[in-house]
């Protein structure tokens, strides 16, 4: 394991990790996540038609997209890039927006308030690429953000076991 960095992903109990091994080289994987023509083919849940309205691949630049459901409902969202290390690592803050890119609540779920920081990493092994996205909810203020970043060590404590227990309990509600 590398020395602890000051990124959030390693150190919060509330992170969400989605990982997948794709049968494609890393350069291509990187393109599918950063080039509008590619993103429009897959970005978003099943059945949604995605359109890329803006994509500026630089720190502080934005990727603004819309997604239309089969029933016509439309939602907008954006990523603001924080760190770009092609083709290895992409850090962004993701949120829901209106058509102009102003932050909004989740259109269908008003209880969906937070911005998410996503850190995607791309690791290639013999032509296949593992893409991992770590997501943590982030808050607007620095001190609130600190709460997460200083938060306890997810892996070391085996919080997974605890969470399983809670999950089972929650399932009974």
């Amino acid at each position: 394991m590398a020395a602890r960095s000051n990124t959030a992903a390693e150190s919060t109990a509330c992170e969400l990790v989605v990982t997948r091994i794709f049968d494609a080289p890393r350069e291509l994987m990187w393109k599918t996540l950063t080039v509008p023509e590619h993103l429009e083919h897959w970005w978003g849940p099943k059945g949604m038609t995605s359109r890329v309205h803006q994509l500026e691949l630089r720190p502080g630049g934005a990727f603004l997209y819309s997604q239309r459901a089969p029933d016509g409902r439309e939602m907008w969202g954006k990523w603001v890039y924080r760190e770009i290390v092609a083709p290895e690592r992409l850090v962004f803050v993701s949120s829901f927006t209106d058509e102009k890119g102003n932050l909004t609540r989740h259109p269908f779920e008003p209880n969906w308030p937070l911005e998410i920081q996503g850190t995607s990493t791309f690791a290639e092994d013999r032509g296949r690429t593992t893409v991992t996205v770590r997501m943590v909810p982030i808050n607007a203020t620095a001190s609130e953000e600190q709460t997460f970043f200083d938060g306890s060590k997810f892996m070391e404590e085996g919080f997974a076991g605890t969470w399983d227990k809670l999950d089972k309990y929650l399932a009974t509600l």
Binding site: R20, F22, G44, P45, K46
Partner: peptide
């Protein structure tokens, strides 16, 4: 989204 990405690739 990753399911779709697999198909697309």
């Amino acid at each position: 989204a990753f399911d779709r990405l697999e198909d697309y690739l």
